[in-house]
Design a protein around this nucleic acid. Sequence first.
DNA 1: AGGCAGATGTCCT
DNA 2: GGACATCTGCCTC
Length: 210
Amino acid sequence: MDKEYFKKDGLELAKSILGKYLIRNYDGKTIVTKIVETESYMGINDKGAHVYGDKRSERTKPLYLEGGRIYVYLIYGMYYCLNISANKENVPECVLIRAVEPIKGIEEIAFNRFKKEYSDLTTYQRKNISNGPGKLCMALKIDKNLNAKSILDNELYISDFYYEDDKKVYSNDKIDIQTSKRINIDYAQEAKDYLWRFFIKDNKYVSAYK
DNA sequence: AGGCAGATGTCCT
DNA sequence: GGACATCTGCCTC
């Protein structure tokens, strides 16, 4: 992925990063996951968006930067959510990453989530290891420190391949995408019914919402 | 497998 | 003071 890739609009970006790899590097460790669920937030006219009504604030600053910036915010006082800004500068669209599938580094993920080895997790915990926006941030150790940084940098980036024993493994472009209404934005009036949630059909790690 | 309450900080009226 | 792009634990079925 290059800089230009992220300058498409928020709906295009949400669909095109499905199936791509979200890769996290920290403390010399690498975690590889696959993006399986996203939502679009379409800027100043979207009643579900943080920037609705052109609400510029300290919090929403990264959204106004050019596409490809990380926007991390705190929700319900205890959880982080990861977004990628879309489109060009001053067009504050973004994509919320709602769920990922673990590919590499499962032991690291299990520890970040439950402070236990993967083999000690219950089937319930295994199923719920990264199938939600707050859960995936815990799984990948994502917090405010990454806010406003580029999603092309080594700490956290999106790619269409990862390395398995020095061999490139590419993502599959042929993905069956399903759509639905966005989750938990009942306040957004007519915008709550827009079909701006996208997920990979039948993927085990999509969040619990139908 | 599903419903409900509680946790808890930051942004907004 | 209230809302919030959520998760967990505890309860019932």
